[in-house]
Computed example of a mutant assay.
Amino acid sequence: MSLKKKLGLGVASAALGLSLIGGGTFAYFSDTEVTNNTFAAGTLDLSVNPTTIVDVSNLKPGDVVVREFNLVNGGSLDISKIDLKTVTSVDDANNDNTDNFAKHIKVLFLENGDKTGWNFIEGWDYNDVISETTLYDLQAMTPDAVENLNSFWTKWLGIEGEESGLGAGDSDQMYVAFEFVDNNQDQNQFQGDTLNLEWTFTAHQTEGELK
């Protein structure tokens, strides 16, 4: 085969190869956009003001202690409920207790003033989260401190106070009264004793929703 023919076959083969390679491609327009997305979680931030609700000394049977405090939602999310957990302990000064001091301290009421409503027939309908129970018995309960307890009729007849829960940036004013119950019996075993009360308020979020 002559050199000319060999060169011609080589060029033809190269052209065929290029056509096979380029045969599967085509030209097209394109446009690309990039989105930047974030998922930022909200915050639950419950505080109690003041942090010490009761600090009283020299109690005697028959004494009543009344205090007020605020539950504050400083977070960005609404709170659906606030559970109240009670824990007590007693420092027995003379090691002579035969009864529990917490059974002799009664919570007369824990009222949520912001949830209190007005009944046009009976007047104020107080929203007592806790009513007439001892600190000892309260340890077995977990009341919701921001629940609106007003009845249907109170809501129908008048102003029922704020809805249950605690909105972001909002606060509820609470009133509480404790009584050292005088049972008309010998309570000398409690002289010099100290009752320690720990109240833990636990906030819960509202239900998830479509965003």
Rank of each mutant, 00 (worst) to 15 (best):
M1G: 15
S2A: 05
S2R: 04
K4F: 05
K5G: 07
K6M: 15
A12C: 13
A12R: 13
A14V: 14
I21H: 01
G23M: 07
T32E: 02
T38R: 01
T38I: 01
L44E: 01
S47Q: 08
T52M: 08
T52P: 04
S57D: 07
K60G: 05
P61M: 11
G62R: 13
D63F: 09
V65H: 12
V66Y: 11
E68V: 10
F69I: 11
N70P: 06
G74W: 10
G75W: 09
S76E: 11
L77C: 12
I79L: 10
K81W: 07
I82Y: 08
L84I: 15
S89P: 10
D91P: 05
A93S: 08
A93V: 11
T98R: 04
I105F: 03
I105Y: 01
K106Q: 06
G113E: 15
D114H: 12
G117I: 05
W118P: 03
N119C: 13
D125A: 12
D125Q: 10
Y126V: 03
S131T: 08
S131F: 09
E132K: 14
T133R: 06
Q139D: 01
Q139N: 01
V146D: 02
N150I: 03
N150D: 09
S151H: 06
S151T: 13
W153A: 10
W153N: 08
W156F: 11
I159K: 12
I159A: 14
E162A: 15
E163T: 14
E163P: 15
A168Q: 02
G169Q: 08
S171N: 07
Q173L: 05
Q173H: 06
Y175E: 09
E179T: 05
V181Y: 02
Q187T: 02
Q189V: 04
F190G: 01
F190E: 01
Q191F: 07
L195R: 13
N196A: 11
N196M: 12
T200E: 14
T202N: 14
G208A: 07
E209V: 07
K211F: 03
